[in-house]
Structures are given as structure tokens and as C-alpha cells.
Amino acid sequence: MTTPPASPVAPTPDGTSTSRCPSCGAPASGRFCSSCGTALAGATCATCFASLTPGARFCHRCGTPAGAPSTAPSRGLASALPWAVAAIALVSLTALVVGQRFGARGNSDAPTTEVLDGANMQGATPIGPSATADAGRAPAGPVPRAPDISQLSPEQRAERLYDRIMTEHEAGREDAVRSFLPMARAAYEMIGPLNLDQRYDLGRLGEVGGDTALARAQADTILKVRPTHLLGLILAARVARMEGSAARAGALDARLLAAEAAERSAALPEYLLHRNDIDTALATARSAAK
């Protein structure tokens, strides 16, 4: 059944045209009846904005009651927010790129200050164009370490890897030790004929890596060249303990104690580099001899 259209009534004293509500018969003006909320001519749904039939009490499209307040969200801020975020991101990215370009340009003439630790943490080896000019000059402050060893000589690469492996071993990070060992052994193989200090380092790498054959070979070679060499005796004693030979380890400890005075007076460079190893081994030997 179709609801009859609103019937016109006489104008109000202020001149506003009114009609009667087709539902309740009350005088009404505008788009909805102020008495019952029924839609008048020209009314639209507050939710879906569909045109309402005069006299309808509900929207024929979405069912919203006629005259109900709008439930549609405000589109102003919601629609502008994505654009605002995108604009802020673009400005930030532009500022970052410009800053990096100007920073790189400003530092292009600055000298290289990266350094690498020397053998067994005993010093620093500068690299870069300013290394020669600044060789006798004390550094003004702490300098960063170079991130890789690709530009080093085989000797420097071997020393750096040895220091790193010993640090990881002392910290108990055996996974890191195993990952660096192949690189370190390859670096020592590239050096060529090894001196006694390098042979001790390579033997220690064999020890921490569980390669007793490598450690024993280096100890034997050191002692063949210099039978009283403190590091050779220490390495040989370590190998004996790895192999479970307490008697041989004790005999090597005795040789170490007997050779200490004469060998320390020789002041070999490797004795200074491995002073901690020597002091620890001597303390162990003296304790075992009591």
C-alpha cells in the first residue's frame, strides 16, 4: 500500500510553506515530520543517502529509520591522513639523502683513521694514505677498527685472525672459533716459511681446534730449531696433556722451569708478545712440581 503524499496546508504567519504529515497528520515542514519522524518530500537516508519516499518511516535500501541521525564517519580527516603520512615520509627521505650527500662531500678530504690491531693485541697498524705521515705521531683519540681484513698482508691477516680466535675461545664461543679457524689456517699457509712465533700461533690454533697433529708438529719444529724455546716447551706440554700423557707433560714442565732464566734473558720478541701464556705455564709447572 502506497503512503499518500503529504497534503499542503496554509502558510504559517512567517511565510514558511508547510504540509501535513502523511502518517500522523500533524503540520510539518522540511524533510521529516517533527512529530513522528516520517519522511517528507525531498528527504534522504542519513546512512546511505538514498532518496526516501514521502511518508516512509524506514529507508527502503538500508533500513535506517527516517529522521535518524547520520552514522556515516567524517571523511575529512580520514581521507587526508594517508596523504599527510606520505608527505611526511617523503620529506624525511629527502632530508636524509641530502644530509648524506653533504656529509660525504664534507668528509671526502679527511684522512683515513681506521686501524687494525697488531699481533697479539700489542699495538695498532694504521692503514690509509695518512699512515706514513702519521707514523710517529700519537693519535688524538680513540680510532675505529677497520671492518675487514681484505687489504692486509698475509702476516697481518694471520695475526688478526689469531687474536680473534683466542678472544672467542677465552669467552667460550666455540662456534665462532670453528668458523674462523679455516680462514686463519689458510692465512698462515699463505705466509710461506714461518718463524717460531708464527709456528707457536699456528700450533695454538691447532690446540683450540682439537687438531693435536697440527699442534704437535709445530711444537716439534720449534724445539728442533731451539730446544729450550719457552713457547715450544709450553706448546709441547699442552699437546701432551691433550693426549693424556701426564708423564710427558711433567717432563716438559721440568724443562720449561730449567730453561726459564736463560731464555728470559734472551728477550726474544715472541716472549713479550706471549708473556701471559708464559707466566701461566710457569705457574702451572711450579704448582705441579710441589
Rank of each mutant, 00 (worst) to 15 (best):
L93S: 08
R105E: 12
P73T: 05
A135M: 12
A84G: 13
A131H: 13
I88Q: 15
L96M: 14
W83Q: 12
G141L: 01
V98I: 08
D117W: 03
A110G: 14
T113W: 05
V85W: 06
A133Q: 11
T132K: 09
L116R: 00
S79Q: 06
A86H: 13
G103P: 04
G136F: 02
G118P: 10
A138M: 10
R105A: 15
T112G: 15
A87D: 03
I149G: 07
G76R: 01
A146C: 11
E114Q: 05
G99Q: 04
P144E: 02
R75M: 12
G106H: 13
N107A: 10
S150Y: 02
R137A: 11
D117T: 15
A110L: 07
P139Y: 02
A104V: 07
A72L: 14
G128H: 00
A78G: 14
W83M: 12
P147A: 05
S70K: 09
G103N: 06
L152R: 05
P126H: 01
L77Q: 14
M121L: 15
T132P: 02
A135R: 05
Q151R: 12
G99V: 06
P82M: 00
W83Y: 12
P126V: 05
R75F: 04
G141T: 08
D117F: 06
P139M: 02
G128D: 00
T94K: 10
R101H: 06
N120I: 07
A146D: 02
A133V: 11
G106A: 12
Q122K: 10
G136R: 10
A133H: 02
M121C: 14
S108Y: 07
A80M: 12
V98F: 03
L93W: 00
R145H: 10
A110N: 13
P142E: 03
T132G: 10
G136V: 07
V98G: 03
Q151F: 01
Q151I: 13
P111V: 04
P139S: 04
S70W: 04
R137Y: 07
R101Y: 09
T125A: 13
P142F: 01
L96G: 06
A131P: 05
G118W: 00
L116M: 09
E114W: 11
A89C: 11
A110Y: 02
D117A: 15
G118A: 07
V115Q: 04
I149Y: 13
S92F: 14
P142R: 03
A135E: 11
R101L: 08
S74C: 15
G76V: 06
V91N: 08
A110M: 09
A119Q: 01
S108F: 15
A131D: 06
P147I: 03
T112E: 06
T125M: 11
V85D: 09
R137F: 09
I149K: 02
Q122R: 12
S108P: 11
G118T: 09
G99H: 02
P147F: 03
P126E: 00
V115P: 01
L77Y: 07
W83H: 03
A95W: 11
G76P: 03
V143L: 05
A86S: 07
V115K: 01
A110H: 06
S74L: 09
L96N: 01
D109E: 13
P126Y: 00
V85L: 07
T94N: 05
R137V: 15
S79A: 15
P73R: 10
D117I: 15
